[in-house]
């Protein structure tokens, strides 16, 4: 375990330090006093664990291929951008465009997430990315979603608060969304439908919920108090009939 005090450090210096350490074989790094440094874990492919105390900057773990990052704090925009593998555990909120075009790995957010979370998330062969949100999500959740799993638990919502914003699943053409709570039809993109859960869904959910509870010390009974809805796209060719040949 190596500790790096990031206060006042420029991101390029900090990231170089992290890359160096990991390439030297350090398995666990703790970054303290992080505030706003971008690109932490960018392109990382090593089996290493980074613990971040503070607020990392944008594009945390972008293009990451496989490592573990645990953030004690909130994360900013663009976390897990085009990520291909690894695990991110966020003990706070995440901002906009979390998991854009994410193709692999898992992101667990204890609290809320911003706009466009999981936009254009993809699955491919055995790569099945997942984002688990403990609180609520903003508008355009899972927009263009093409694969993977998105779970929103809606824990701690006020009685009249929505679990997701508007345009949930707009343009969705793959993957599956599990929402623990009600969603009004007008909140959904016209490409998605609500269906009931199968046994297989329950099994899948169980795995992620187990992790969520473990990471954040949440009681499973609390989650089990409310049922899940499952959202899937009508088809994988949402814009198939939009054009006419000239």
């Amino acid at each position: 375990m190596q500790t790096i005090d990031a206060s006042g450090m420029l991101y390029r210096d900090l990231n170089e330090l992290v890359r160096d350490s990991i390439s030297r074989g350090v398995k666990e790094i703790c970054l303290i006093n992080v505030n706003g440094q971008r690109y932490i874990g960018d392109g990382l492919a090593k089996d290493a664990s980074t613990i971040i105390e503070g607020t990392p900057g944008n594009d945390l773990a972008a293009f990451m291929e496989g490592a573990r990052i645990e953030v004690h704090g909130n994360v900013q925009d663009g976390t897990a951008n085009t990520m291909n593998g690894g695990t991110i555990i966020i003990h706070g909120d995440a901002r906009d465009a979390l998991g854009y075009s994410m193709r692999g790995g898992e992101v667990y957010v204890r609290g809320d997430v911003g706009y466009r979370v999981g936009i254009h998330m993809k699955g491919y062969q055995d790569m099945n990315p997942a984002i688990v949100v403990g609180g609520k999500a903003g508008d355009f959740f899972a927009e263009y979603m093409a694969g993977g799993i998105m779970i929103v638990l809606g824990l701690g919502l006020a009685p009249d608060e929505d679990i997701v914003g508007n345009y949930c699943g707009t343009g969705m053409h793959g993957g599956v969304i599990y929402l623990r709570g009600e969603v009004a039809p007008e909140q959904l993109g016209k490409e998605v439908k609500v269906v009931s859960l199968t046994k297989e869904d329950t099994r899948i959910l169980d795995e992620y919920l187990h992790n969520y509870c473990r990471y954040f010390g949440v009681e499973r009974e609390e989650i089990d108090k409310k049922p899940f809805r499952k959202l899937i796209p009508y088809n994988k060719r949402p814009y198939g009939n939009m054009y006419a040949g000239w």
């Binding site: 505030n35 706003g36 503070g54 607020t55 900057g57 944008n58 909130n74 900013q76 925009d77 909120d93 901002r95 906009d96 809320d112 911003g114 706009y115 903003g138 508008d139 914003g165």
Partner: peptide
């Protein structure tokens, strides 16, 4: 624009939120 900008001058805000569009 970014949370870090707030944290820099207020490390422990009482309430922090993302305004909607």
């Amino acid at each position: 624009s970014e949370e870090a900008a707030i944290r820099q001058v207020c490390s422990k805000p009482e309430h922090m939120w993302m305004p909607r569009g």
